[in-house]
Amino acid sequence: AGNSETVKSAESVIKIDTASPSGSIKINNDASYTAQSDAILILSASDSSSGLSGMMFSNDNSNWSSAETYSTAKTWSLSFGSGKKTVYVKFKDTAGNWSSVYSDTITVDTSVPEKPKVKDGKEHTRSHNKLSASWSSSDQESGISEYQYSIGTAKGKTNALDWTSAGTNTSVIVPSLKLKTGKEYYFNVKAKNGAGQWSKGGHSNGIEVKKKNK
Rank of each mutant, 00 (worst) to 15 (best):
F57P: 01
S82L: 10
K130D: 03
L43M: 03
Y149W: 02
N205P: 10
N193S: 01
T125Y: 04
A31I: 02
V87M: 13
S20H: 11
Q197T: 14
D109Q: 10
G83N: 08
V172E: 09
D162N: 15
N169R: 15
K84D: 01
S150G: 08
T94F: 07
V7Q: 10
N188P: 11
S62M: 09
E146S: 14
S22R: 13
L52Q: 03
V7K: 10
G121E: 08
K85D: 03
V89I: 06
L52S: 02
S49Q: 14
S58V: 04
S138L: 00
S132H: 02
A154G: 07
A154Q: 05
T164L: 05
K157F: 14
S165Q: 04
S132A: 11
E5N: 08
V108Q: 00
N129R: 04
E68D: 00
K200N: 15
S150N: 00
K183F: 13
K115S: 04
S24G: 13
S24A: 11
L78R: 00
A45K: 02
N205D: 11
L161D: 08
E208P: 12
K8Q: 10
K119M: 05
S176M: 15
A35I: 07
I207N: 06
V13F: 00
N29K: 10
K74S: 04
M55P: 04
V174D: 12
S32A: 15
S150H: 04
A45C: 03
A95G: 06
